[in-house]
């Protein structure tokens, strides 16, 4: 199946105009006595990719979870600013971000269509099955496949996670090793997709050690091991 970019999705989902900037200062995280990292600062603006790199166990995924609001830092603060300069609340912020991460799964008892239908409904999106079929087709999954996600390969599940993250056309995308388990065609499509999102002034935060993915970055945070 041929993969295509996300052209046309904007007709489905209303976009946030102007994009969102993220700035974080003096962010630290520790679990009991174990210090994951101390005092990390940085920022990323619309149209940029912030790449978080570091050896295994250095806290890349932890920092990504803190930046997307799923985890509270032990110290420091994270601010999300809209184009008009106002800070977004946590509730408002949740509506504008999409996440793809190995530690986050979709529902394996449901089919791909049912997963997308569910996320669209809880996000309050007015999408129909035609939109979901279109999105699944774009990420390279067969929309007519009736088997639950449990029967998918890891690469197919990864494609569904990407579809889920793009469902609401988010202003900010958090990607944790997004190319993992994708075949070369999928990796090419993902890179093309990221570049088209950047042209549309989306903000992307990427945690990776993949040399190819690192080249997408315009800003970098390097974590020590």
């Amino acid at each position: 199946m041929e993969l295509s970019t996300l052209d046309g999705l904007h007709a489905i989902v209303p976009q946030m105009s102007g994009g969102i900037s993220i700035s974080f200062s003096d962010v630290a995280k520790r679990y009991d006595m174990r210090v994951v990292f101390r005092s990390i600062s940085g920022e990323v603006d619309p149209g940029e990719v912030l790449v978080i790199t570091g050896p295994n166990g250095s806290g890349k995924s932890t920092l990504l979870s803190i930046l997307c609001g799923l985890l509270r830092p032990t110290r420091g603060e994270v601010l999300y600013r809209s184009a008009d300069g106002g800070n977004l609340t946590r509730d408002a912020w949740g509506r504008h971000l999409g996440v793809v991460a190995p530690s986050m799964a979709v529902y394996e008892e449901l089919t791909a269509m049912e997963n997308l239908r569910f996320y669209a409904r809880v996000r309050g999106l007015a999408l129909d099955d035609g939109d979901h079929r279109d999105l699944l087709d774009r990420v390279g999954l067969d929309p007519e496949r009736k088997t639950p996600v449990r029967g998918y390969s890891t690469g197919m599940a990864q494609r569904l996670k990407i579809a889920q993250a793009l469902l609401h056309d988010p202003a900010v995308l958090f990607l944790d090793e997004p190319s993992s388990n994708l075949d070369p065609t999928g990796q090419d499509w993902l890179e093309e997709c990221v570049r088209s999102l950047l042209e549309e002034e989306r903000t992307i935060v990427l945690a990776t050690n993949d040399r190819r993915e690192m080249t997408w970055g315009s800003r970098n945070v390097s974590l020590a091991g």
Binding site: V106, Y107, Q164
Partner: peptide
């Protein structure tokens, strides 16, 4: 246990 909670936290309001 199935790691679906994080996406649900991001997608839906807590009271929902």
């Amino acid at each position: 246990e199935s790691h679906t909670a994080p996406l649900l936290r991001l997608a839906a309001a807590p009271t929902v």
